[in-house]
Design a protein around this nucleic acid. Sequence first.
DNA 1: CTAGACCGGAGCGAACCACTCCGCAACCGC
DNA 2: GCGGTTGCGGAGTGGTTCGCTCCGGTCTAG
Lengths: 233, 233
Amino acid sequence: MPPDDRPSPRRRRAERNDRALLQAAREVLAEDGTHASVAAIAARAGVGIGSLYRRYRTKDELFQRLALLSVEHWNDAAARALEDHDPWRGLAGFVTACAEFGQGTLGAIAGAIAVTDEMASASARGDDLLAALVVRAHDAGVLRPDVTPVDVTLLVEQLGRSPLVDQIRKQGRDDLLPAAEAARRRVIAVAVDGLRAGHPAPLPGAPPPLSLFSERWVRARPEGARRHRAGDG
Amino acid sequence: MPPDDRPSPRRRRAERNDRALLQAAREVLAEDGTHASVAAIAARAGVGIGSLYRRYRTKDELFQRLALLSVEHWNDAAARALEDHDPWRGLAGFVTACAEFGQGTLGAIAGAIAVTDEMASASARGDDLLAALVVRAHDAGVLRPDVTPVDVTLLVEQLGRSPLVDQIRKQGRDDLLPAAEAARRRVIAVAVDGLRAGHPAPLPGAPPPLSLFSERWVRARPEGARRHRAGDG
DNA sequence: CTAGACCGGAGCGAACCACTCCGCAACCGC
DNA sequence: GCGGTTGCGGAGTGGTTCGCTCCGGTCTAG
């Protein structure tokens, strides 16, 4: 083993800054969506703009790294869920972990950044892991039978952002944050319990198609000429 | 009664424009949050900026009207739910109606606009109506006993925005919109079913305090000097 | 045909954006 | 101690977007 695994105070501070930057980016992205600014991210992280730009050459590069880490967190959570012998506890824990991690904040930059090969392959692996989780739960009869992996993914995204927490953080009411996060966990628990088997009425409509996701990450239409005329024709 | 209740083509068009403006504002607010611009709202409504500013003196005035209409929709839905003799169907229908209406988009402007007396009193009436709905459902034993009205409100807000639908709308993929909205309804159905009585494990943590809401609408801190130092202290 | 209500959008100053550049302080080998 | 080096914070910059005003054009009423 290398005896010098304490890299250097210099490097340690840089790594801490990097973590702070990524966490700040998640928070600002949750609050400001597409309009999240690098200045806001740097300020939230307590780091200068210059430091941010030494680590990431552009804003897009920062967001790409954020997206990759998010997919990897998804995969880790799914792999850990599969190790749990209880199919329901595994699936419920997976959804809860992803939701609390803030998986839903990524929707804001979908279509705004380029998808790297690394992201695509990690995401494909995530799809397989989730499919395995869902199949196992279905076989055990603990998951309501009309739920598909796409439904689960959408639920994770839906729960992965808390308007309450985001807004309280934006207002700087740090005193209310713990209560807001606790409240959020209750809402997540309610929604996750809705996945259980044994509901009287089936889900409405047909299962959602996979294309809903595959098309989400293509770059947005270059020209924003949507017409919604309200005039008198 | 006035015999002239067909006002005039002029006025009818103005009213149509107003409805289009309000709906466009809801959509743009859902997509862009705090940064929603009047230009985007007017364009989405297919209306000139000048027309928007003739009807509403400022951007804040438009948002205030939007907030008031949202509270009134909440109240109407709650009153209609109380007329349903089935306590569960009433409550579930209420949550579903509010979520699909897009009640959650309002969180973005909470703290950014002033609260009028009209909004405050309508909101107070809404609290009473929801409390009645929840009590009735609890008495009938159809609602999981550890759920409070605050939990229900938070769930409505959580479901009241669909990242998927918002982003697909922003990308202009109108062809995918129906599928996205159908998928959204399934997620809402899952989460609402989680409110039912008969779950093995109680909700985590203590019931959330009312202060989470009462404090949300106060104006944001005038000075944004939050400190999150990441330096080496 | 004329008067005027009502519309759309160009234009304005201010604010904000992503990004660059540089002076400064903390760490290193010596 | 001490120069060299490394990473740092943030003022500066050109360009974009903001909320809002104002005016020429269009449709309606009589």
